[in-house]
Design a binder for these strands. Sequence first.
DNA 1: TAAAAAACCGTACCGGGTTCAGAAACGTAC
DNA 2: GTACGTTTCTGAACCCGGTACGGTTTTTTA
Lengths: 206, 206
Amino acid sequence: MMAGLRERKKEQTRRRISEVALRLFDERGYDAVTVNEVAEAAGVAKVTLFTYFPSKECLVLDAVKDDTAAIVAGREAGQSPFDALREHYRGMARQGTGEVDVEGMITRVRVISASPALLAGVHQTNMGQRYELATALAEAMPGHGLAPQIMAAQVTAAVTTLQEVFFHRLSMGVPLEEAGRLLGEEVELAFDLLEHGFSSIKGEKS
Amino acid sequence: MMAGLRERKKEQTRRRISEVALRLFDERGYDAVTVNEVAEAAGVAKVTLFTYFPSKECLVLDAVKDDTAAIVAGREAGQSPFDALREHYRGMARQGTGEVDVEGMITRVRVISASPALLAGVHQTNMGQRYELATALAEAMPGHGLAPQIMAAQVTAAVTTLQEVFFHRLSMGVPLEEAGRLLGEEVELAFDLLEHGFSSIKGEKS
DNA sequence: TAAAAAACCGTACCGGGTTCAGAAACGTAC
DNA sequence: GTACGTTTCTGAACCCGGTACGGTTTTTTA
């Protein structure tokens, strides 16, 4: 395999495009920057850019995937799908997202939060995962009719909301540590709601 | 006001565009029909089409709005937001959607179900309502932190799923009556899940 | 019937995304 | 080092959804 000069160059180009794009979007706003500009600034042709990233959105969102279906499928024996998910998000809140480049992540979040189009894109991604999660749940607990689908939708919705609030805080300048702590609390709230239902809250209405 | 010839013509043109669009989309698929073709077939200029419908999606989706926030805001005194929503969807399942043109509705559903782009559009609409619902819930039950947002997300998610399954059945040829009956059952399932949580299901795992 | 208002039109344009034919860069074999 | 197949890159033209603009027709109002 010889280390592969070709491979290295590809990865390098991909990174360069991604970084240049993120910088431009951050400076002037996602909508105000055209893909032509990104390509030119990165020193590649538009066509090349689109071979690396299938769409403009992906320039920002490709790095923000989160595979909930895999969590369910890969859970330990004896653990319910629900508990596996809860545990996963607990861990995520505790130790941060694990991304190496924190600075870049915050920039990315800022860019996303500033663009309705990108926020919509994140939703779409989450919705796609909802479908996969539904499939995984249906396998894990057969014979419950529509319940897996509805549960998948609810889990996805809750997680999306948590993610959104987390992103919003970061883009507002809340330090990562603090945001992580708040997220931790809210993960518990969200999963309690999922597990025990709204009735557990309606009762304590002030 | 003189009955308004202008107004009548406008409405007529709008209807014509919408019907022509739906017919073409149904015949050849949403993605395979360009707005130019729709405009030409309807006998108007592209610009005119876009004054009536702000986007291609709206040609199909403008007729499929459902204002959950209004349901919460307009609920009877003493009724919880949650019960108001449950009651609303119960009623919807019982008496059909109330649309006059059932044939047209089914065509519309078929077109939507056949197009990923339109399905995504429906999701976007629902997500927008989630936001409004969150606001309404936050007003109706203050002092619960993030709970209203998460509840709104969960309700929206559940409703979206129900809607999706309902659409899918109709587009598969299930008669409206039958689909309505099934929807009725599933509304109960979904809202029970929301009210009492997943724990009520985990217990009865086969 | 004249003039204000509103709807409509053709055309040109923009930006995201694709197609295509060929040029450049790479890997490999001699 | 040279020759050759393969992969990657490129420019230019194109498609489609959507907008801007300036001018024309229709409706309303006076």
